[in-house]
């Protein structure tokens, strides 16, 4: 196979994996037709990406929704089970989950392929906006579900309820369209969430993965693992000629020369493909370091 063909093929492997995984995790096709959701035993397993368990096709559980429901309310036990899944996914893959296994990330990527004259590499104030996802993680995923309880000690999954555009797209819209009972229950909250979803999808045409970059608490969790995950990147400073092609190629705004394991890196591999000196590679932690 020629070098050009091989490189082109490598660029499409990630897309194939993303589509395959989105289909596998939403494989309950019957649900889309009947407006019902899968109720089998697979739902006790958390999937790695942001995939609403109320999506008619969902075969597994969203780790973020499960985490909130595990801690929401008074007197809940420590959520060993869900944190275990998040730790295993995070330590093995880091944010490669975002790059390869998240259906909502795939949707944003596909939207970004739509030609648009005012495309931006990042929003103004990008480096500050990146911290918003950590604030959302702390506030809407942990603090409010744990402490904002009513008189009966019951709380809500605040992120799912007030923000999550994946839930609106994958769960809300299909169920509202197919189930008349749910359709009759639609209120102002649904339209607020619909507006959030519309904003995210429109922004996704202009900026690459805006929700993943600025707002996704699941990406924030996996980003914390990026520096110690088993799948890591390394830049060989001896080979690097500082041409900047890797930084130009990175759609997440990372400079792989100085920070190849940035919490923002989703392991898309674009920098590896664009590097003319093959200075960037996936680091194999289990191999002996090369003698230089």
């Amino acid at each position: 196979m020629g070098k050009g063909i091989r490189q082109k093929f490598a660029g499409h492997i990630r897309l194939l994996v993303q589509v395959f995984f989105a289909c596998i995790t939403n494989g309950f096709a019957e649900g889309f037709a009947t407006g019902s959701i899968y109720q089998g035993a697979f739902k006790r397993i958390c999937v790695p990406g942001l995939n609403c368990y109320s999506c008619p096709g969902a075969l597994g559980s969203c780790p973020l929704g499960s985490l909130q429901n595990s801690i929401a309310g008074r007197g809940k036990p420590f959520p060993f089970y869900v944190l275990g899944f998040l730790t295993v996914f995070g330590i093995v893959l880091g944010r490669a989950v975002c790059g390869f296994l998240c259906p909502f990330g795939l949707i944003q990527e596909l939207l970004n392929k739509i030609p648009f004259p005012l495309k931006r590499k990042a929003l103004p104030g990008d480096i500050y906006f990146r911290f918003v996802k950590y604030v959302i993680l702390a506030l809407f995923v942990v603090i409010l579900p744990v402490f904002a309880v009513n008189a009966y000690g019951i709380s809500a999954p605040w992120f799912c309820k007030y923000i999550c555009p994946a839930g609106t797209l994958e769960g809300g819209l299909p169920l509202v369209l197919t189930d008349s009972g749910i359709r009759s229950s639609v209120g102002i909250l649904f339209f607020i969430k619909l507006a959030i979803l519309a904003a995210v999808l429109i922004f996704a045409v202009v900026v690459y993965r805006p929700f993943c970059r600025y707002f996704c608490p699941l990406g924030a969790i996996y980003g914390l693992f990026n520096k110690i995950a088993l799948i890591r990147m390394t830049t060989d400073q001896g080979k690097c000629i500082s041409c900047g092609k890797c930084e130009d190629a990175c759609k997440m705004g990372v400079d792989p020369r100085t920070n190849p394991n940035s919490a923002e890196c989703i392991r898309c591999g674009e920098c590896i493909r664009k590097c003319p000196c093959k200075a960037i590679s996936v680091e194999r932690l289990y191999s002996r370091p090369s003698q230089q």
Binding site: I37, Y38, Q39, A41, K43, R44, C46, C52, Y53, S54, S61, C62, G65, S66, N69, S70, P77, P79, F80, Y81, V82, L83, G84, F85, T87, V88, A156, P157, C160, K161, C164, G167, T168, G171, G172, L175, V176, I182, S185, V186, G187, L189, F190, I192, K193, L194
Partner: peptide
């Protein structure tokens, strides 16, 4: 170990118990 401990404590059933019903909060209705 966390997954095994959670399973031993029945937390997998809690996840299943929530996930097999349509989550009204998640879809923007609850």
């Amino acid at each position: 170990v966390f997954i095994a401990a959670g399973k031993a404590l029945g937390q997998d059933n809690a996840v299943l118990g929530k996930a097999i019903f349509i989550c009204m909060e998640c879809i923007g209705i609850g």
